[in-house]
Simulated scan of single mutants.
Amino acid sequence: MTGPHRGTGPRPGRARGAVLGSPIAHSLSPILHRTAYAGLGLGDWSYDAIECAEGDLATLMESLGPEWAGLSLTMPLKRAVLPLLDTVSDLAVEVGGANTVVFRDGARHGENTDVYGIVQTLAEAGVAAPSAATILGGGATAASALAALREMGLAEVTLVVRNASRAGETLDVAERLGVAVAVRTLDGFDRSGVDGDLVISTLPSGAADGFAHEIAAALPDKGALFDVVYSPWPTALARAVRDRGGAVIGGFPMLLHQAVKQVELMTGRADVPVEAMRAAGEAEIARRAAQE
């Protein structure tokens, strides 16, 4: 495994990309990537959503021809893909998952753009230097959040999980990152459960509902919540924080910015149309919400 793959400049000609996962039909990635290709003038490029369970990943990757530029991966494929790659960026090794595969020069290169997505989202919202932070959840997104907070200058983070016995992999990530972690559980949550002026919730939709008011009350004045859920929105936690005057950041910007970095890696282009992708993604979210 080597360091980050820098690419070899813009990729010429027709190429394919896709997002893999199971279930995958709900993914916004095709909307975002196709909008980017259109804005970049890559009319011959295509991007699809492919249903792929963990056990089918190796066979699927073996079947891909030279026209493939890259893949986006959802959990649990982010971890399962690592042994199938030729090189993996240092960051993807540290967080234990690659959400991006770039095919170039006959090799498979693994990257993690989730961390970039979190950092960009927080910076865009004006949360560039939290004094301290609390992460809710202990899965793959929590691992990326740990790496993002390290990039933002934090060496200590509080991790609040539903079951402490399931936080092992995330604690291993923290050790590789050199971040000290204090683990607490949601059971019996009170005001002492939140440290700092930033809470990042990586919990699935609905998982924090029962603790929403306690978490909101624990945030200091001018504190911020970043909830990685983007649909349905707002979550009960987001509403509770907003009702108390706190800043609330939804999950869509993270999805957007990690996709922007994926497009850069797969195409070799730096002029990715971020705002066109944002508008397309927000329109699709609104369309789906109207149908529910």
Rank of each mutant, 00 (worst) to 15 (best):
H5R: 08
G13E: 14
G17D: 03
A18P: 08
G21T: 04
I24H: 11
S27N: 03
L40Q: 07
G41E: 05
G43T: 11
I50G: 02
G55S: 12
L60S: 09
M61W: 06
E62V: 00
A69P: 06
V81R: 13
L82S: 08
L82H: 08
L82K: 09
P83I: 07
L84T: 08
L85S: 12
L91A: 06
V93M: 14
G97S: 07
T100G: 07
V101S: 07
R104N: 12
A107Y: 00
H109Q: 13
V115H: 14
Y116V: 13
L122G: 12
A123G: 13
A125R: 03
A125M: 03
A125L: 02
A129Y: 01
A132Q: 12
A133S: 13
T134I: 04
I135F: 11
G138H: 07
S144L: 02
E156N: 14
E156W: 05
V161W: 14
R162E: 13
E169C: 01
L171S: 11
L177I: 03
L177H: 07
T185G: 14
D195G: 06
S201K: 09
L203G: 06
A216C: 05
A218M: 08
G223V: 06
L237K: 10
A238Y: 05
D243L: 08
G246T: 10
V248T: 11
I249S: 06
G251R: 09
M254K: 09
Q262L: 00
Q262A: 13
V263L: 01
E264Y: 00
L265E: 03
M266C: 01
M266N: 00
T267E: 04
G268A: 04
V272H: 08
V272E: 06
P273K: 07
M277D: 03
R287M: 02
